[in-house]
Design a protein around this nucleic acid. Structure first.
Lengths: 234, 234
DNA sequence: TTCTATTGTTACATATTGAGACAATAGTAG
DNA sequence: CTACTATTGTCTCAATATGTAACAATAGAA
């Protein structure tokens, strides 16, 4: 597979995406594993010369997950010189059988705009890119070491997610359209990393007036069935 | 004065700063006026090849205000293609007597990382840059039209400032070290754009336990003198 | 000494949240 | 069909936090 050409992209500028999903129990993110190195990294990409920055990230997200219309937001731009480790990209490229010149554009310094995305775990079909041979979900609370500053990027994404949880009612994007309040509570708990009180959470969510109540969900378990809810359209 | 050389900077990447100050009554920002055009713009600059992104913004801030150790934080990266209007920079350059080639690097597309800064209005000595002939404070609630998307950048900065006001106790950076609660209240009111209730505000601030009480401030007015406060270190 | 404007604090009503109690109910075990 | 269990939806009461107003203290002016 051909490498991306410098001519098509803005030099020295990249994006990386922290793609969050919720398994039903734990908060997870998607990580790429690079061929022959075992190295793990956030999915990312480059910005085309005639493309909006945010559209580039959305394109990358759709290429990796097959999903459109996803919650996606930038949260920080990483531009420290310590990011500049040409030997990392060099190794990844040669592990893929690519010989490049010392001044090849991908070996240069990159400033990376970081985004976080919230998606419905069950709808995704993770798809590889040219340099990777695996893409998989990993628990955010027990991540392995990632390349460059990617662990730091994930930490910052989580921090932003926590801050935006109530302010932007962001939790909804991690669930299917219809869900129980218990499931919503588990999402909040996974993001905040702490247990919440059931009755307080239920009262709080219902009092916001943003939920629409639907039919009950019969799980087959021997207890009272919870109602399903969806978020009101605007 | 010589133009910046492409060789020293990362191409296609800029930063812009929304520098907030508080006059005692109104929230203000610093704007540059470009020579011979009357155009107004946010102070900004470019990132040196061996310089951290955040350090570049801090350098630009210090060049414009003479201040070090300032509250400075990035809040968004603007990367839409509509930003790309080479005729704007072209006009600014020729108004300054610079003839440049069509492919001159400053005429290319730029993605701009935007920062906001909070400074003590009275300590600043606004300083010009190479292309401008005025730098001055402007009321944020009655801004003129700025070049490119700079009005939009200011709006987003204000929005971020409002969101961070309580969360990060950011208001303190706009005041001198010692201040009265009334002055602090005026800062909050200017940022939020609404009147606050005196007693509630006073109780709230004191209950946070972040203020240290000092001597009284005798203003010469005929009424009870308020206490001066400072923020506790850490 | 009286008066005015403003400050710091208290008091009470109202709203929000913490913590637990309780009835309703879907299935399971007898 | 009845007793039992786990979980849900709702209510109650206590503990906090906030809105609103009252009030005493006080720095200077008249």
């Amino acid at each position: 597979m051909a490498l991306p050409s410098q001519r098509d992209f803005i030099p020295n500028l990249a994006f990386d995406s922290v793609i969050f999903g919720f398994s039903g129990e734990k908060l997870k993110i998607l990580l790429m594993e690079y061929h022959n190195t075992g190295w793990l990294a956030l999915p990312g990409g480059f910005v085309k010369r005639e493309e909006n920055l945010n559209d580039a990230a959305r394109r990358g997200l759709s290429e990796r997950t097959g999903l459109e219309n996803i919650f996606l937001e930038q949260f920080y731009t990483f531009g420290d010189t310590e990011r500049f480790k040409p030997e990392v990209m060099q190794t990844i490229l040669s592990a893929n059988g690519h010989q490049v010149e010392r001044d090849y554009w991908l070996l240069d310094r990159f400033v990376s705009v970081a985004f976080y995305a919230l998606i419905n775990y069950n709808e995704v079909v993770p798809t590889l890119d040219a340099l990777s041979d695996a893409i998989a979900w990993h628990d955010v609370d027990s991540l392995p070491t990632l390349i460059l500053d990617h662990n730091w990027i994930v930490d910052k994404a989580l921090e932003t997610l926590r801050e935006n949880l109530n302010r932007k009612l962001v939790g909804m994007n991690l669930l299917p359209q219809k869900f129980t309040i218990k499931e919503l509570q588990r999402v909040y708990e996974a993001i905040l990393g702490e247990k919440l009180r059931r009755t307080t959470f239920q009262r709080k969510m219902l009092s916001l007036g943003i939920l629409e109540r639907h039919e009950k969900l019969y799980s087959g378990k021997s207890h009272k069935a919870p109602y399903l809810y969806s978020f009101k359209k605007n």
